[in-house]
Amino acid sequence: MPADMSMLLELQIRFRRAILDGDTAEIVAAIQGDGLDPAARVGIYRNHAFGTLGDALQSTFPVVCRLVDKRFFAYAAHEYLREHPPHSRCLVEYGADFADFLARFTPCEGLPYLADVARFEWALNIAATVREATPLQAEALAAVPAEQAAYVALRLQPSLSYFASPWPIDTIWQANKEDEVPPIDLASGGTSLEIRRSEEAVAWRRLDQGIFAFRTALADGLVLAAAMAAATLRDPAFDLTSALQQVFAEGLAVAFCISRKREIPR
């Protein structure tokens, strides 16, 4: 530590290490025993932090928890917490990279769909915690000169998520919300999902390949020409006019701009 470092800062950095890593060696000398091992006193705070943050993850990822059982989930959450402590002080916003963590977490290798279930639950969480913006009306594009139409980029609802999986994730998720989990055919194929807040409820649906590719491209900030190209690759019969009408009819777009770079920053 630098010599002029604040005593309080130094103490708090050591305390943080004791909580996240369980390494109390550098903090115990600063704590009065009062008839108890100082490390055990720090342990009370450590248990509280891991317990409550683990509970927060469990409430955001309930089906992941059910798939691996509570004890294993607590273990996975503990390892995740150490590597990725929360930044936001709103606990509903904790867990954005939990799915990526699970995908790399070798004890979970036997459940290849687990990370995608976590991605789905994170998308549900986004939809539950982000308000829909006022939809853009299709007429707003009427003023765009014809030669620039291909370079229109749409900004979509902030509650929207698109994700595809080689597993029937929505079926797995729904089945695990039941008391008795019905049999699931894991070989029934993948899913391409759209998740959003609709009215005040969270909703999701499967999209066909062309529409999914089109909307994913729009969500990524691609201009209409590029989104259409992506959609046509998946579905040679893709019809831009009707796809665009659907986007407006469903209130998915909230703003637009005209880009020469084929992309806009999100």
Partner: peptide, 9 residues
Amino acid sequence: AIGGAYLND
């Protein structure tokens, strides 16, 4: 919180 980690206690 310290150093970008919120410890929720």
